[in-house]
C-alpha cells in the first residue's frame, strides 16, 4: 500500500526512554526513540495512522510489548529528512518501516534528534 505524505505514523515509546524532572517537571523523551536499535537493521518500526488510531496502535503493541505512550510523525516529515517510509504488511497489516539506510552514525544521530523534536512539538498522541 502506498503511504500518503500526510499520513501520521505512530511510534511506541519504551518507559525507560522517558525521564521526568527537569524544566517544569515535563517528561523528556530520548532521541533514541527515533533511532533504529541493533536488531532493527536500520529500519524503524511504526504504525500506519490511516489503519490504526493512536490508541489502537498502543493496544495492539501492548498485547506483547511495553509502551509508555505514543508519539506521531508524518510520512512527509520523515521524507524531508531523507528517510523513506514503506508499508510492511508482511509483518502485520498497518506496519510501516522507516529506512535509515546507509547514513553514517552521526547523520542517523542528527536525524533522530530532529524527528524526536518534531514529535514532541506535536505532543503525545496517546498516553494510557
Amino acid at each position: 500500500m502506498t503511504l500518503k505524505s500526510e499520513t501520521l505514523l505512530y511510534r511506541q515509546v519504551h518507559p525507560s526512554w522517558v525521564q521526568n524532572g527537569g524544566v517544569s517537571n515535563q517528561a523528556f523523551v530520548t532521541s533514541q526513540t527515533f533511532k533504529p536499535t541493533p536488531k532493527d537493521q536500520n529500519k524503524l518500526s511504526m504504525y500506519d495512522g490511516d489503519q490504526y488510531s493512536a490508541q489502537e496502535s498502543y493496544e495492539h503493541y501492548s498485547e506483547k510489548l511495553t509502551s509508555a505512550g505514543v508519539l506521531g510523525v508524518t510520512v512527509k516529515e520523515f521524507q524531508l529528512e531523507e528517510l523513506p517510509c514503506e508499508s510492511d504488511d508482511v509483518t502485520f497489516q498497518g506496519h510501516v518501516l522507516v529506512d535509515y539506510g546507509d547514513h553514517t552514525k552521526g547523520t542517523i544521530e542528527r536525524k533522530s534528534k530532529k524527528i524526536r523534536d518534531i514529535a514532541i512539538q506535536r505532543g503525545w498522541v496517546y498516553i494510557p
Partner: peptide, 11 residues
C-alpha cells in the same frame, strides 16, 4: 537526561 541503551551503554 540519562537513559539506558539496548546495547548496554548509557546515553
Amino acid at each position: 537526561y540519562t537513559f539506558p541503551t539496548p546495547n548496554g551503554e548509557i546515553q
